[in-house]
Design a protein around this nucleic acid. Sequence first.
DNA 1: TTCCCGTTTTAGACTTAGTCTAAACTCCAT
DNA 2: ATGGAGTTTAGACTAAGTCTAAAACGGGAA
Lengths: 130, 130
Amino acid sequence: MQDLINMLRDHKIQPTAQRLEVARCALASEDHPTADEVLAMALSRCPTISRATVYNTLNLLAEKGLLVRRTLREGVTVFDPRLEAHHHLIDTETGEIHDIPWDSVVVGDIAEHPEFEVLDYEIVLRGRRK
Amino acid sequence: MQDLINMLRDHKIQPTAQRLEVARCALASEDHPTADEVLAMALSRCPTISRATVYNTLNLLAEKGLLVRRTLREGVTVFDPRLEAHHHLIDTETGEIHDIPWDSVVVGDIAEHPEFEVLDYEIVLRGRRK
DNA sequence: TTCCCGTTTTAGACTTAGTCTAAACTCCAT
DNA sequence: ATGGAGTTTAGACTAAGTCTAAAACGGGAA
Ligand SMILES: [Mn+2]
Ligand SMILES: [Mn+2]
Ligand SMILES: [Zn+2]
Ligand SMILES: [Zn+2]
């Protein structure tokens, strides 16, 4: 709790009750939640929190570098508390998004593109649990 | 033109004027258009075509294997007439999506995941024109 | 040819993800 | 205590996409 407050302060975010609750839900999450999923989680502990605040806070956390916005599901943005580079596997049956360690895949010289300066990349896999 | 008609017939799609126009726009496109972008293109030659028809037709073409739906831009689905495996680079300045040939990147044994059966994957790069 | 009936198209209602607005609330500094 | 910047809120608004139900189309059968 105090850790969370300090983490927000360190990133120049005023730690309000609503922001702490959104941060708690999103930063602890393993499963790349959408904003409305975070809202549903947050409502149980913070019953008057509004949709606007959840969207605002998630966008603020992303802007301040505590979360990454990702485009992995059709039509919605998901939020990812894991900041270090990694890949994603989307379960074709359940839709769940799983993290794949960066080092578990060897990729050749991808930055060596003649036409573009490659700033960053990731692999998106699709599959199902064995 | 006759080619397009035959292509639709081969895929059990009745070639109507509207479908031919949507197919012409989407299949010829190099730039991964959204449904509303296809609608805008189609309207110039087929001024009464409706949004519903464009969405229906794009989804039909995807279902029949003439197009691939892709999740590459936040909040919208784009349609890709290029059926063979390839990667994508998103220009961080313009948002344009560029195709990257499959063979231009060497990826190690990605199918060898202990927990999942990997059905398919692609690399999403971000960068900007040199 | 004309007619018929299944297929297709259409406008617009509806849904969902997300942003914006403006009023109300909070809470720290004076 | 009071003021004011910062925050939260409900609800309006927008944009992507689906659905509905009526109208239009069109390829055979007669
Ligand atoms: Mn569009
Ligand atoms: Mn949207
Ligand atoms: Zn992740
Ligand atoms: Zn492509």
